[in-house]
Computed example of a mutant assay.
Amino acid sequence: MSETILIENEELAVEVHPLGAEMQSLRTADGRDFLWNGDARWWTGRSPILFPIVGKAPGDLIAVNGKTYPMAQHGFARRRVFDLIDRTKAACRHRLVSTEATREVYPFDFSLVVEHRLDGRTLTVTAEVNNPGESPLPFGIGFHPAFLWPLPGAAGKTHRVILDNGAEPGVIQLENGLIGKTLHGSPFEAGRLELEPSLFENDALIFPEDAGTGLAYGADDGPKLHFIFENLPNVALWQKPGAPFLCIEPWHGMAAHAGGTAELVERPYTVALAAGESMRFGFAVEIRE
């Protein structure tokens, strides 16, 4: 397997592994790493790319026109080796394409290109999906980056998530990993959420809509991460209770409905990409101090 790719500029350094095109670190020039380290005692992920589904499927099976295929939670891209197709000092691009092996579990042709790019103190991660086939390509896609909680230099300080739009989006709870039917009241107050581990006792907080296109995470008088989302209407927050990280997850697509069908096209927020078309999704995160 190829080695991890390092990209850097005068402010930041990022490592990306070809397995899953997954970011491994996000360091400032003074050596502080803001990304979770993948400690297996808690969670081995760091920043997986979720494709061609986000979340779970009933019985780990998806259906396409009534035929079922095995599909693990969050899809297979995070477990596949991507090819490095372009690299500069401050950017790299990896690509995953359909093969006989992927078509056995997902009967479509596709190309998925993931780019990591640095500009000053901002990292931008994008995923472009292309449909080279002759029929619509159904999929969900998402990002699952985990950041330290507390952030470097903010130990002992209260951390918050603050939505740029000041909204109070409703939250959906998972039922055995699947999307529940009830939209519950928001944990946000005027766009602000004070973080505590008890919020995640019942798994992730999932906001299917109205969380907006940007948010900040951090302590009031410490470092902060500011996010901008591109074409990603669903947002989730997740911590394994007590673990020293917070996942900030923008998605286009969610788990299947609890008690619903396994049909891929009926999953909430599934994209149906027309033949010959491409679509881009992404997030940018800026470290502010």
Score class of each variant (00 low, 15 high):
residue 116 H to A: 13
residue 209 E to H: 08
residue 105 V to H: 05
residue 38 G to F: 11
residue 71 M to C: 09
residue 229 F to L: 09
residue 14 V to L: 05
residue 86 D to A: 14
residue 286 E to L: 05
residue 102 T to A: 11
residue 243 A to R: 03
residue 164 D to V: 07
residue 89 K to L: 13
residue 224 K to N: 11
residue 124 T to E: 10
residue 183 L to D: 08
residue 105 V to S: 10
residue 235 V to Y: 04
residue 259 G to Y: 05
residue 237 L to P: 06
residue 73 Q to V: 14
residue 107 P to S: 00
residue 81 V to L: 10
residue 143 F to C: 01
residue 13 A to N: 04
residue 266 E to L: 11
residue 17 H to A: 15
residue 173 Q to D: 11
residue 207 F to R: 03
residue 49 I to F: 01
residue 101 A to S: 14
residue 39 D to H: 11
residue 190 A to Y: 14
residue 21 A to E: 06
residue 84 L to F: 02
residue 75 G to W: 06
residue 246 L to C: 04
residue 151 L to M: 08
residue 9 N to T: 02
residue 138 P to N: 10
residue 27 R to Y: 07
residue 129 V to I: 13
residue 37 N to Y: 08
residue 152 P to K: 14
residue 75 G to F: 04
residue 34 F to H: 04
residue 23 M to S: 05
residue 97 V to Y: 09
residue 135 S to D: 12
residue 98 S to L: 06
residue 8 E to G: 02
residue 127 A to K: 03
residue 101 A to I: 11
residue 242 G to K: 07
residue 266 E to S: 13
residue 7 I to G: 00
residue 43 W to I: 12
residue 188 F to T: 08
residue 213 T to P: 01
residue 171 V to K: 14
residue 98 S to W: 08
residue 99 T to A: 13
residue 146 A to W: 08
residue 139 F to E: 04
residue 281 F to Q: 02
residue 211 A to T: 02
residue 41 R to E: 15
residue 225 L to I: 07
residue 5 I to C: 05
residue 101 A to F: 09
residue 106 Y to F: 11
residue 118 L to S: 07
residue 13 A to E: 13
residue 101 A to E: 15
residue 281 F to E: 00
residue 204 A to G: 04
residue 280 R to F: 01
residue 289 E to A: 11
residue 230 E to L: 06
residue 103 R to A: 07
residue 182 T to F: 13
residue 68 T to K: 11
residue 216 A to Q: 12
residue 22 E to Y: 05
residue 188 F to Q: 07
residue 280 R to L: 09
residue 37 N to D: 15
residue 270 T to Q: 00
residue 79 R to H: 15
residue 227 F to E: 04
residue 93 R to S: 15
residue 53 I to R: 11
residue 255 A to N: 09
residue 133 G to Y: 03
residue 148 L to H: 15
residue 276 G to L: 03
residue 85 I to G: 05
residue 7 I to N: 01
residue 179 I to R: 15
residue 236 A to C: 06
residue 262 A to R: 14
residue 50 L to P: 02
residue 280 R to K: 14
residue 109 D to P: 01
residue 229 F to D: 01
residue 156 G to S: 04
residue 260 G to I: 07
residue 163 L to P: 05
residue 154 A to Q: 07
residue 39 D to W: 07
residue 14 V to F: 06
residue 222 G to P: 01
residue 280 R to T: 14
residue 149 W to K: 12
residue 144 H to E: 10
residue 24 Q to L: 14
residue 191 G to H: 13
residue 286 E to G: 09
residue 165 N to G: 08
residue 280 R to S: 11
residue 153 G to H: 11
residue 223 P to L: 09
residue 122 T to S: 13
residue 163 L to W: 06
residue 51 F to Y: 14
residue 1 M to D: 11
residue 171 V to H: 10
residue 51 F to R: 07
residue 211 A to V: 03
residue 239 Q to H: 00
residue 112 L to D: 04
residue 212 G to F: 01
residue 29 A to L: 06
residue 270 T to K: 02
residue 56 K to I: 07
residue 143 F to D: 00
residue 54 V to H: 06
residue 156 G to H: 00
residue 132 P to C: 10
residue 53 I to N: 02
residue 123 L to H: 10
residue 182 T to N: 13
residue 219 A to R: 03
residue 163 L to C: 08
residue 278 S to F: 11
residue 228 I to P: 01
residue 39 D to V: 11
residue 172 I to A: 13
residue 111 S to G: 12
residue 256 A to D: 13
residue 166 G to M: 08
residue 242 G to M: 05
residue 185 G to R: 15
residue 286 E to V: 03
residue 16 V to Y: 05
